[in-house]
């Protein structure tokens, strides 16, 4: 009885402690920071609008510095090597990262991130490294897509092996519009498809239902066994 009471106290303490931080139980697999959506999916809950970012890169001796531009929420990072820009006649090069206020969904492609416009005051002469973060509420993307206009056409610019979970990496020599996604003709790639919608309450409800439904007959069986053992002991 004392054991059950202590367990009940521990359950209550956990509920209180977990309620004070979202999502509650976190073991370090999903991203700590929720994704900021332009068009949040129904399961996203509370949402902040995605941020933009700006960077001025110095040009020293005709060569642009190495630097990285990023959105202030860290959802997009684009890194430039020294001399990445055609910096003829410039002393600084400005780079802007801006989330598109709309959410185009071109035919045959399913975007799982916001669409970002990346512009610069000089063209690239060396590839830049582009990292897009994505949410754990959507299937992992297979490719980064590029377009010079949000209306399209969109084309895949591939993706390298992901450096960190929930990020996708590629390189680009062009500025324009970028988003991560997968070909919608195919099923969502490489994901444990248990998610979406309102499934977490259903998962918990099923677990509780199983525990209650299977627990009752097991408890009865155990009680009968212990009664039987007591009777046997009494017979001796």
């Amino acid at each position: 009885m004392r054991r059950a009471a202590l367990l009940a106290v521990a359950v209550t303490a956990y509920m209180v402690a977990a309620w004070m931080v979202a999502p509650g139980f976190y073991d370090g697999f999903g991203p700590v920071q929720p994704y900021n959506w332009t068009c949040p999916p129904p399961q996203a809950g509370a949402n902040l609008k995605p941020s933009s970012g700006h960077l001025d890169i110095k040009v020293i001796g005709g060569v642009s510095d190495a630097n990285s531009a990023f959105s202030n929420d860290g959802q997009v990072v684009i890194g430039f090597l020294p001399g990445a820009f055609d910096s003829t006649g410039k002393t600084t090069i400005s780079v802007d990262v801006t989330p598109l206020p709309t959410c185009p969904q071109p035919a045959g492609i399913r975007f799982v991130t916001n669409v970002y416009q990346i512009t610069a005051s000089a063209p690239l002469v060396k590839s830049a490294n582009l990292v897009l973060r994505y949410s754990n509420l959507e299937p992992a993307p297979t490719d980064v897509y590029f377009a010079s206009d949000p209306a399209g056409p969109w084309k895949s610019i591939g993706a390298a092996q992901q450096a960190q979970p929930f990020t996708i990496v590629t390189t680009t020599k062009l500025f324009g519009y970028f988003a991560a996604g997968y070909a919608s003709a195919s099923s969502p790639p490489g994901a444990v498809s248990v998610g979406g919608g309102q499934t977490l309450p259903i998962v918990v409800a099923v677990l509780i239902g199983l525990v209650v439904l299977a627990g009752i007959p097991l408890a009865i069986l155990r009680r009968r066994q212990s009664h039987g053992e007591a009777e046997e002991e009494g017979d001796v």
Partner: peptide
């Protein structure tokens, strides 16, 4: 069920882990 309960009450969604993860 106990460990997931606070998240289930609040968020309502199951995140999707990539298979490797």
């Amino acid at each position: 069920a106990v460990l997931l309960f606070p998240a289930a009450v609040r968020s309502g969604s199951v995140p999707i882990l990539p298979a490797g993860l």
